[in-house]
Amino acid sequence: MSSSQNETDLDALRDHFGREMCRLRQRAALSRNQLAAALGCTPQWLYTLEKTDKTVPEQMAFDLDTYFKTEGWENDDGLFHRIYGAIRRAGQHRVMRPSFESYVQYEAKAISVRCFATQVVPGLLQTEGYARGVMDPNEPLDIQEARVVGRMERQAILTREKPPMLMFIIDESVLRRPIGGAKVMVDQIDHLIGMTESPCVQVRIMLFERITSVALGGGFILLSFEKDADLIYAESGRLSQLLEDRDTVFKAGVDFDTLMGEALSQAESIELLRRTREVYL
Rank of each mutant, 00 (worst) to 15 (best):
R88E: 07
S102T: 14
V95D: 06
E153T: 01
Q155I: 04
T55R: 14
M185G: 08
V186R: 12
Q126E: 06
T48G: 03
V120E: 05
Q119W: 05
Q188T: 04
S99F: 01
N75P: 04
D187G: 14
E58R: 00
E71K: 12
F116E: 03
T127A: 07
N75E: 14
M135L: 10
G129P: 05
P43H: 06
D77H: 15
G72A: 13
N138E: 11
G72W: 14
I83L: 07
M60L: 02
P164M: 04
M96N: 12
D53I: 08
M135D: 02
I170V: 09
R151A: 08
R177H: 11
K109M: 12
T48S: 12
M60N: 06
S99N: 08
I157E: 02
I143K: 04
E139Y: 01
T48P: 01
M96I: 01
F116C: 02
P140K: 02
P140I: 00
A90E: 10
G91Y: 00
A61E: 04
M60Y: 01
D77F: 14
G150F: 04
R160N: 06
V121I: 13
C115Q: 13
V120N: 07
M185R: 03
W73F: 15
D65W: 13
D136R: 09
I87C: 11
M165K: 10
V134I: 15
A131G: 04
E153D: 08
P43E: 06
Q188Y: 05
R176P: 06
T70F: 11
G180N: 00
H81Q: 15
R89G: 06
Y130K: 00
E50V: 11
P57K: 07
L175V: 00
E107N: 11
A146R: 05
N75Y: 14
P122I: 07
Q188I: 05
P137F: 06
Y47H: 12
L141T: 08
V121Y: 02
I179K: 05
D136W: 09
F62I: 03
G129D: 10
L49Q: 11
K54H: 09
M167I: 06
L49S: 08
R154D: 10
E172T: 08
S173K: 08
L125W: 07
W73E: 15
M167P: 00
L175M: 04
H93F: 10
V149Q: 03
R88Q: 12
L175R: 02
H81T: 15
T159P: 00
